[in-house]
Computed example of a mutant assay.
Amino acid sequence: MLDTPADAQPDLRPGLMLCAYEPDLGWNEAGSDADTDWTPTGARLIPVRAEAPDSLARTLVERLRDPACRAALLVGRTSGEEDFLIQTRAENRLLNGKGRLVPTGPGVARAPAPALEMAQTLSEAGLKARLSSDTVTDPGNYLLYRVLCSLPDGPDAPLVGLLRVPDGQGSAITRAVRLAAEAMARHLSPLPRPRAA
Rank of each mutant, 00 (worst) to 15 (best):
P192R: 02
L188K: 09
M118Y: 05
L163P: 07
G170E: 15
M17Y: 01
G31M: 10
L101F: 13
G15W: 13
S171Y: 05
M17P: 01
G161I: 12
D54S: 05
G161P: 13
L131W: 06
L101G: 10
A157N: 13
S171I: 10
P53W: 00
G26R: 15
P40T: 09
D24V: 04
Q120H: 08
S32Y: 14
A6P: 11
A196Q: 12
L144D: 09
D11K: 10
D37Q: 12
T4Y: 15
R63F: 06
G154E: 15
A125R: 10
D83N: 15
S123N: 12
A68L: 05
D7K: 06
T88P: 00
R70A: 15
L127M: 11
G76D: 13
L18Y: 10
P5M: 06
A119G: 02
M118L: 14
A125H: 11
R13W: 07
S150F: 07
R77F: 07
E81K: 13
C19W: 10
L2A: 14
T39M: 07
D156F: 05
L74N: 11
L179E: 09
S133G: 11
L162M: 14
A157I: 08
P53T: 00
R195C: 05
G80Q: 12
Q120K: 13
L148M: 02
Q87M: 04
R195D: 12
Q87L: 09
V48M: 06
P47V: 14
A181N: 11
E22K: 02
R195I: 11
D11R: 02
P139I: 00
Y145H: 12
